[in-house]
Amino acid sequence: MVQKEQEWISIPMTVDVPFRFAAGQYLSKFMIEMRDNSKIYAVKCPQCGRVQLPPRIVCAECHVKNDEWVELSHEGTLVAFTIMYLPLTDPTTGKPHEPPFVYGSIRLDGSTSVLDHFVNVEPDMDKIWVGMRCRLVLRPQENRIGDLSDILYFDTLPGQVRPK
């Protein structure tokens, strides 16, 4: 006799919770300076001198309040990267980033922390390496909206040769 196959029920559901996150004192200043004056600001710990991105209220190492702001260069050095083969989604737009694309961690000159963002480079292991010099590219001023998407990506500086 043929046994009837067990049926299992599952219920599709999108757990969709809307948010509006307050950027607060430190990130508001960071994003307003970037939007209006094309400047990248970090905070410097009054005790250990670490220059921190994103700017935040407390230096984690020293547990003191950060109140000194320093302007950073738009150029920096790639300290890590990955070529992505998954179409990860931008939650503010709901649209995927088209793979393959490159995420990089860039230490802007003058900063202790690194900044993670897209790197506008061919996703080819021969054309990207740790130690590359990069430059931040902002959205054209008239189109800026005051969030992290005002940073479009990092370009790699031209004329670099992969070290052997």
Binding site: A22, G24, Q25
Partner: peptide, 16 residues
Amino acid sequence: KRVDVSCGEMAYEVIE
């Protein structure tokens, strides 16, 4: 509505 602070900054008010 505390639109002037992030969660971390709000927490630091009472921790400080």
